[in-house]
Amino acid sequence: MSLILITTDYLRPGDPVDVYLKEHGHETVHAPLRGRRDRDELVRLLDGVEGALIANEPMTADVLAAAPALKAVVRSGVGYDSVDVAAASELGILVSNLPGINANAVAEFTVGAILAASRRLVELAAGVAGGGWPRTDGHELRGSTLGLIGFGAAARAVVPLARAFGMTVLCRTALAPAVEPAVVPPAAGSPAVASGPGSPAADVEFVDLDTLLTRSDVVSVHTALTPATRHLIDARALSLMKSTALLVNTARGAIVDENALAAAVRDGVIAGAALDVCEVEPLPADSVLRGVQGITVYSHMAGQTVEAREAAGREGAIELVNALAGRPAYRVNDPSVHRFRVALDARVTP
């Protein structure tokens, strides 16, 4: 029996994930993350824990080193930048994510955020709620250009939605489309998104970043946070965009320089931004993003639909059980990482 820590806030004692883990012989402890969690609290929670199904916990090298029983960590989502994978590898801890698990949810949210910003829906609704009757116009999407930064599962799922609205789609990606994963892994619980003729890639023009920023009416961020992409959208990048352009970010907050963005919107360098993520979450009371007309901040909910949560919980539990048995399907660290002897049996299935 392994002790498993669950911090994803929508997973609860007695739910199907909890039942599944217990049916496979594990004991669970729930400590939902609803804000920030300091190092000492996290270390205390990890005491004696062998497996962790986590939200965006700061799993730093220091925290991991203080959890000697820990064997496997599974992120109940796509991004895993909160986990020090190199440190985990050194300690023999398996780290997995769930690639593509919420691609459809993120894609739909992205288009919804674009529509809301283009038609000023938040501003109009706030005006009516405040007793007014605003008559401010907006822009149609048809005939406009969408620029995607990154071409992972969520970005690829955006393409047919944008095309349905009559948008032209550009993309900047670090990988050529030919070497992108052919399909979203089966764990996504969603229709596969393929590459090749007739696929999203066929409807996209791949360009360099400066070209994308210059030509796009909407720039949507879908890349991972790495040292190379931290503050990728800085003052220089924003200066290349059209004064009528919108920025949408559903990836990671630190990809955008928030000080530069606030200044750019305030000064009319770009028209506005819709952000589902920010550098510090929840958004601090003194954030530079607050009070800037044209910037709307959501609460990191792009991937949080009923369907996506069910899929993430189910697949996260399966991945954790398999990781503890030494058979992870979606590990993100080196395949040679192992801390304990495992049998070469087949993957556990639901």
Score class of each variant (00 low, 15 high):
143 G>M: 09
143 G>A: 08
144 S>E: 06
146 L>C: 12
146 L>F: 14
146 L>K: 11
147 G>F: 00
147 G>L: 01
149 I>E: 04
152 G>D: 04
152 G>S: 09
154 A>R: 01
154 A>S: 15
159 V>W: 01
159 V>Q: 04
160 P>T: 00
162 A>W: 13
164 A>S: 09
164 A>M: 07
167 M>P: 05
168 T>A: 10
170 L>D: 09
170 L>S: 15
170 L>G: 05
170 L>Q: 12
170 L>E: 07
171 C>E: 02
173 T>A: 15
173 T>H: 13
174 A>L: 14
174 A>M: 09
174 A>Y: 12
174 A>I: 13
174 A>T: 08
175 L>W: 10
182 A>Y: 15
183 V>F: 07
186 P>K: 11
186 P>L: 15
186 P>S: 14
190 S>W: 11
191 P>R: 15
191 P>I: 05
191 P>Y: 12
191 P>G: 11
192 A>R: 12
193 V>T: 14
193 V>R: 14
195 S>H: 14
195 S>E: 08
196 G>P: 04
197 P>A: 15
197 P>F: 14
198 G>H: 10
198 G>M: 10
198 G>E: 10
199 S>C: 07
200 P>M: 11
201 A>V: 09
202 A>L: 06
202 A>K: 02
203 D>H: 11
204 V>T: 08
204 V>S: 12
205 E>K: 10
206 F>E: 01
207 V>G: 03
207 V>P: 00
208 D>Q: 09
208 D>F: 12
209 L>C: 03
210 D>T: 07
211 T>P: 05
214 T>L: 15
214 T>Y: 15
215 R>V: 10
216 S>G: 06
217 D>V: 05
218 V>P: 08
218 V>T: 12
220 S>F: 07
222 H>C: 04
222 H>W: 02
222 H>Q: 04
222 H>L: 02
